[in-house]
Nucleic acid binder design. Structure first.
Lengths: 145, 145
DNA sequence: TTGACACTTGAACCCGAGTTCAAGTCAAGT
DNA sequence: ACTTGACTTGAACTCGGGTTCAAGTGTCAA
């Protein structure tokens, strides 16, 4: 018996996930145990790497379905297509969050004080958003929303 | 009866959310209908703005509980504290996503081809992550994960 | 041989953020 | 009078990504 096989607890802690998550990934088809020793799952170090890989893609905002696709497709073009699509989404999301960040940060310097909806930076952004959806503008008065 | 009141359908479409979401926000205490006309909710334009405000904070990654806090706290320091905490989270998340974006983008240029786990850029990042959790390093060989 | 301990299973549950559904109400138009 | 259409309600359901639970199994040490 090769002793370089890891238990579920080992791969889980080393990959920084819960054992329940590892079993869940197996259910979802992202992973297989490489062996069983008296019923217990055993993993090759490569599988630990695979687990970390899953975590990376997850951190990049990919859903488990996409990750499964990337791991289980048979051609380069196929997985790169999925990755490229998600890269676009990711860029969009980063841009959105950056904008949100600006607004939120600016609001912290706002001294129209209370309540938050009174803040004129927020107010201006609300106007922008309302205008965007090409609806008739609603007049801005410093009223409690 | 003041005719500048909006129906739920109006506020919803103008704010870009579903009517069910508006009712849900009301249940959660983020919102109140300003009036009722034969049982139906009516909203002042300010409430439409409030709805957009909710959407903005949501886009910045705030949970409805936080948003409720920001809307319903009584002091400036209180809502700014919440916002500041979330701003930190937001910065962290943006940084994470940017890193993930780099890796993903780089992977698309990788020509170790198939499968995705073979990509050496991904491989290097996996190593970095494994090293980070101060676990003993696992040797890198180009094996299927 | 009795514990302790880490694992096994399927099934049920959790969370956040809503959506969907059935059954009912109301006002307007024909 | 009847239909249409937008609303009302509470309760149940959805979805993703897991977690928790009860009941059982295997291995090791005292």
């Amino acid at each position: 018996m090769p002793e370089d096989l890891l238990t579920i607890g080992e791969v889980a802690t080393r990959a920084g996930v819960a054992t329940s998550a590892v079993r869940y990934y197996e259910r979802r088809g992202l992973l297989r145990a490489d062996a069983r020793q008296s019923g217990q799952r055993r993993y090759r170090p490569e599988t630990l790497r695979r687990l970390v890989f899953i975590g990376m893609l997850q951190a990049a905002g990919l859903a488990l379905d996409d990750i499964e696709g990337i791991l289980n497709t048979s051609t380069v073009t196929e997985w790169k297509a999925i990755a490229a699509r998600r890269l676009t989404d990711l860029d969009e999301k980063i841009a959105q969050l950056q904008h949100a960040r600006e607004v939120l940060a600016a609001a912290l310097f706002c001294r129209y004080d209370h309540p938050a909806t009174q803040c004129r930076i927020m107010g201006a952004e609300i106007d922008r958003r309302l205008a965007e959806t090409e609806s008739p503008p609603v007049a801005w008065r410093p009223t409690t929303l």
